[in-house]
């Protein structure tokens, strides 16, 4: 198969590589660039272990063709800075015992780092963001504790988060447990919001 030359920035460094079109970004990162901190647990988009930050957004690297990443900026767990929120996430996961086998961990670190940078409130990070990751060891309890600790440590940058979303999320948080169908309640509440416009 004809190979393509792509250029991308990975953890701040420019890389130029030749790849077959079918090569997954996860394989490029792991096996061609040697950044094995990003893990692969399914190649079905479902486990979240392969999550990296592409152009500022957390994404599944197993569901991106390497050729599609041409021109993008990719951050992996190896590139997470050793200060600020990035480090707060890692420190909190360690201190709260938020990892056991550690296989899911790099993906979770990346999602949480991206969420905090984007000003996502802790409650949303604990639920919707973490729901995008499967962890079989921890039962999530201590990962949630780590989210709280990290957000606390780095300051919950709520102000950066859009107001209507904030209302939505905190409302949802209160109703959690009342409605056993999170998604039903989500739809209904926001309908009320929508209806009041």
């Amino acid at each position: 198969m004809n190979e393509h030359t792509i250029r991308l920035t990975v953890n701040g460094e420019n890389a130029e590589v030749r790849v077959e079109p079918r090569m997954l970004l996860s394989d490029l990162i792991r096996h061609q660039l040697g950044l094995t901190g990003t893990h692969v647990g399914c190649e079905q988009g479902a486990c979240g272990a392969c999550t990296v930050i592409i152009d500022g957004r957390p994404q599944r690297s197993c569901l991106v063709l390497a050729v599609q990443a041409d021109g993008t900026t990719v951050e992996t767990v190896e590139g997470v800075e050793c200060d600020g929120i990035e480090n707060a996430v890692q420190t909190a996961l360690h201190e709260q015992h938020g990892l056991q086998c550690g296989f899911c961990t790099p993906g979770i670190v990346m999602s949480l780092v991206a969420a905090h940078r984007a000003g996502v409130p802790a409650a949303t990070a604990r639920e919707q963001v973490l729901d995008g990751h499967l962890c079989r060891c921890t039962g999530y309890v201590n990962i949630r504790a780590a989210v709280d600790a990290a957000w606390e440590a780095a300051g919950d940058r709520r102000t950066g988060y859009r107001q209507e979303n904030l209302g939505q999320e905190s409302h949802r948080q209160e109703s959690h447990g009342q409605e056993s169908l999170g998604q039903v309640s989500l739809g209904q509440e926001s309908h009320r919001q929508g209806g009041s416009e």
């Binding site: 957390p58 209507e164 919001q193 416009e197």
Partner: peptide, 24 residues
Amino acid sequence: PDVHLVPGLGDALRQIGHPQVRSR
């Protein structure tokens, strides 16, 4: 910020997979 102008749109989108999937 204007997603609410189309009632139901935000709700429908938020129920697609997870944020990590919706980012693509």
